[in-house]
Each structure stands twice: as structure tokens, then as C-alpha cells.
Simulated assay, not measured.
Amino acid sequence: MRRSDVARWRMICLVSLGLFLGLGIAVYASGILPGDLLVRQFLLGSDGGMVRKLARWANYGGRVHVLLPAAILLFVLSSVARRHWRVWCAVLIGSSLIQHAVKFMVGRSRPSGSSLGFPSGHTTAATTFAVVLIYIASRERISRGQRWIVDALAIFLMLAVGWARVMRHAHWPSDVLGGFLLGIGCAAAAAWWASSHPQAAPESQCLVDSERSRLMMPTTSRS
């Protein structure tokens, strides 16, 4: 693994979590941020019947009913994902636990109801999965075009879920932004670790490869 890859994921992790921490402090201190009302009013201005249906379907992208089968399918199809499957499972579960803990520490209510909202759990989950998918795609032996398609779908997933949470009156825009930052930071931390610890091939496989190489070498004739 190139050092530049490790440095890039380290930077993404630290910057995202730093911004998340700053945003969390601002929300804790101020409650509703100045941009929350403006962005929410702008998005809800197009709240028609078709938009509500789209938001309802997009909302499923952040639920465990969708993300769990998607993660299982990823492990089945990708040897890169299976190589560090414990790390990916840990970050997918851990990011959810972290966002629940932060909700209680910040203590800000949602736009509708009294339940806690910062950060958005749906957005955190979808973003964590999306960034993990982007990392795994970058390690797979696929074409550049295929990698762009995977990246675009992953980014679309996280943005669609975040948009849906605001459109369904479930979160303030800063809740969604917090979910983006936390999900990116957690997934980047896992990618940072995975890129720093490339898993070596099993010893048995190394012996097989060594024996195969020895047999393929030309033999010298005895004089």
C-alpha cells in the first residue's frame, strides 16, 4: 500500500472528525443554527406529492433493513471486503453507537417531536457504508469506469438519505451534516487502519506459490 493512500485516509478521518466535533459544540451551544431554518425552508419549498414519495423511498437507504443485506452482499462479492471484514463490521456498528451517544450529549430535539436529533442516525449509517464501499472499490481490480460508477452510487446513497431526512421533517440540516461528517470520519478511520495493515497471504498459500515457482523454473541438465 502506498504511503500516499494511508496519508489521504488519515487526513480525511482527522478533518471530518474535527469538523464534526466543532459542529457538535456549535449545536450544543446554540441549538438551532442560523443556516438550519434557511436550508430547511428552501428544501421544503418543493415538498409536493411526488417529492414526498421519493423521500419516503430514499429514507430506506439509511435503515438496517437495506444496509445489512447490502453489507452481506458486499462481503460475498468482494475478496477485498472479506480481507478486513471485522474492521468493516466494527465501523458499521460503531458509528451507530457513537451517534446515539452524541445525541444524548448534545441533547437537541428534532424539528418535529421531542426525540433527539443530532446527528442523524440514518445519514451516519448510509454515509459510513458509502465511504467503506468507495474504499473497497478503490482496492478492487476493476476498471476506472466501473469504479466511478460505484463511487457515484455510493455518494448518491448518502446524499439521498440526508435529503430524505430533512424532507420527512425528521432532522435539521445540521443534523444531516453531522451525520455526513461522522460517517465519513468513522469510515475513513477504518480505511486508514486497513490501508496501514495490508493482510499478508496465508502461510500455506505462500508455500504453494513458492513450490509452484520452483517447478516452473527451467532445470539445468547434469553434465
Rank of each mutant, 00 (worst) to 15 (best):
P69S: 10
G179V: 07
L74I: 07
A7N: 11
C206M: 12
A190Y: 03
A55Y: 01
P119L: 08
M50V: 14
G48F: 07
G35L: 15
L43P: 00
A126S: 15
A170Q: 13
V106S: 03
A194F: 01
C186V: 06
V176H: 04
M50G: 07
R108F: 02
T124S: 06
R52M: 08
L133K: 00
S4V: 13
S210W: 14
P111W: 09
Y60L: 15
P69A: 08
V76P: 01
L182A: 06
L77Y: 15
Y135G: 01
T123H: 02
V208R: 13
D47V: 02
F20Q: 07
I155S: 09
L182T: 04
I98A: 09
F180D: 07
I12D: 06
L21C: 15
R108Q: 08
M50I: 14
I12P: 00
I149F: 11
L74E: 12
H84Q: 10
P119H: 07
M50A: 15
R147E: 11
S46Y: 12
T220Q: 15
S210N: 12
T219S: 15
D209I: 07
A90T: 01
W192P: 01
L182N: 04
P119N: 09
I184Q: 01
C186M: 12
R214Y: 11
L207V: 04
L67M: 06
V27T: 09
T219Y: 11
S204K: 10
I72Y: 06
K53H: 11
W88C: 00
S4H: 13
G48C: 07
V27L: 07
D151T: 13
L19H: 05
W193E: 04
